[in-house]
């Protein structure tokens, strides 16, 4: 962050390294139910990020002292593959992934109706297969899709996006180089409908105005991402001619 570099991050036409404008997202693709044995799963490709999420539960929480008599505990585990980054990452949990697991668990707990199933845990396993900046918000976005496909009750979907400051300009969805050589990075996640912020972290410095502008950009972008989430979910249930639900049941 803020590393002095002679690398030009924004060209004379105002376009970024990968040819995007200031408020343009990288391409996002989500596939649901990719894993047979998980209760719900999702695979996400967000620019160069490739992330696999598996959801198990709710199931009785073990070890027993982690049980909460009033609500369910969400245990998210964010893990990066050794080959996910340029230089081999030493496998296993480290400070960074422990922190990200914690903030993701907290963000998801805000969306899931945890009080419906006391004494249980919901496991969310996040494997970053390929990393390219913004993995925590991409993981979170994919995790909420996986939770929905696992049939877990939620008050809303969680959508994440990042913004940052590159060459004194506020831009949306930083790429790897912009993240490494830019001036600031602001990942943020909101509940998609009422835009309550459930995760906000910042690396680098932003002035009050810049922060406001970045937040506004993110919030605007979350609508687009939420659309992609919904499309991904309904994809599996598309049957030739519109699956109109039959009324009545039992």
């Amino acid at each position: 962050m803020g590393t002095p570099s002679d690398k030009k991050l924004i060209n004379e036409n105002g376009l970024r390294l990968d040819g995007r404008g200031d408020e343009e997202l990288r391409p996002i693709k989500i596939t649901t139910d990719v894993l047979e044995r998980a209760d719900g799963s999702a695979f996400m490709e967000w620019g160069g990020n490739k992330i696999l999420v598996a959801v198990y539960g709710p199931r009785e929480a073990y070890p027993k002292h982690t049980q909460d008599i009033e609500k369910s505990v969400i245990k998210a585990r964010y893990n990066m593959a050794a080959f996910s980054v340029d230089e081999r990452k030493r496998p296993g949990p480290d400070r960074r992934s422990t922190e990200i697991s914690k903030v993701i668990s907290e963000a998801l707990s805000a969306a899931v109706l945890v009080e419906q199933f006391p004494r249980t845990q919901i496991d969310v396993f996040i494997e970053v297969v390929q990393a390219d900046a913004g993995t925590r918000i991409a993981s979170l976005t994919a995790a909420s899709v996986a939770l929905a496909s696992a049939g877990i009750p939620m008050r809303d979907m969680v959508v994440g996006c990042s913004a940052g400051k590159v060459e004194d300009r506020i831009v949306l969805d930083l790429s790897k180089d912009e993240d490494n050589f830019g001036q600031a990075d602001l990942p943020m996640a909101v509940l998609s409908k009422d835009k309550q912020v459930v995760l906000a972290q910042m690396d680098g410095d932003l002035s009050k105005e810049e922060f406001g502008k970045a937040t506004e950009m993110i919030i605007k972008a979350t609508d687009r991402i939420a659309d992609i989430q919904r499309k991904a979910l309904s994809e599996k249930y598309k049957i030739e001619n519109l699956p109109e639900p039959e009324s009545g049941g039992e």
Partner: peptide, 26 residues
């Protein structure tokens, strides 16, 4: 009111339900 689940809406004579596509039994 909002939906809790990813599922289909089911309107009966008296009640309205959201039937999820998946999920565990309670």
């Amino acid at each position: 009111y909002t939906s809790q689940y990813f599922g289909v809406i089911q309107k009966g004579d008296e009640y309205i339900d959201i039937v999820p596509f998946s999920g565990s039994y309670f």
